[in-house]
Amino acid sequence: MEFSINHPILFVIVGVIIAVVLAQSVYFLVKSYRRAKAIGMDMSKVKKTIVSSSVFTVAPAVSIVITVLALSKSLGVALPWLRLSVVGSLSYETIAAENAASGMGTSLSELAVGTMTASQFVTIAVVMTVSILVGIWLVPVIGKRMSNGLVSFEKRDKKWMDTLQSAMFIGMISAFVGYVFCDVSRLWLAEDGVFTVTDTVKEYVGGELVEKTVTTAYSATSGLIPVFVMAVSAVGMVICGILMKKLNWKWLNDYALPICMILGMASAIPLTAWLG
């Protein structure tokens, strides 16, 4: 059978794997829903959780589709579809695929020309798969012990356990708050209002692998875009909180996060035109 990165058989194989992953999600949804009913939880709240989680997921999921699109130029559609439906992320998949291509003495941009062989495809798929499997097997190995440890920890000191939980959430959020500011230094590092980033990329030119220097220029104020986007989204959340309290709009509680996220993302369009 002649290989192509978009061969229909690849879609069939990937479709089967994704059907199993989908079945796992449905299984756990039904299992936890039934348990919620059995222990007498307020089912209207449970249903609201399902609706609000669905609404919240739309924008990030669309950004994952964009990632599939970006990777499809070099790897076809089937492999990125699999990789981003199971465990993956753009940064990881690109690095793993690029490392595998480089290990074979080629590069993703060269393979993007459409010359990938079945052997190269399989090599890339092996590297991408094996390097990311840790979480899938480690959770079954240590999950039960971690759950039991957390329960006995809570029995010993419930107040500290509550604080510990909040500390974990705050620790994660603080890393992302820091990340939002990571390009602010362009304000004082830029020369004549322009900040340049120089990268070295390997490319095949006329059958030979050559190193190319790529320079990207950003405006000095471009690092402020994510900061302002975060501020818009945060102010939106504060306003939602006020509306919930003052006007008793309890329904807003379930949709405030997706609404503010979309608001922040929309604000990025004029902000980028202004500061980018």
Binding site: I173, F176, V180, V232, M261, M265, A266
Partner: peptide, 20 residues
């Protein structure tokens, strides 16, 4: 493009203000 490039700041702005 700019909207999807700023998904994480938009997400953590709203989420952060609640938890912080």
């Amino acid at each position: 493009d700019p909207a999807f490039a700023q998904l994480l700041p938009a997400l953590f702005g709203a989420l952060g203000v609640v938890f912080i």
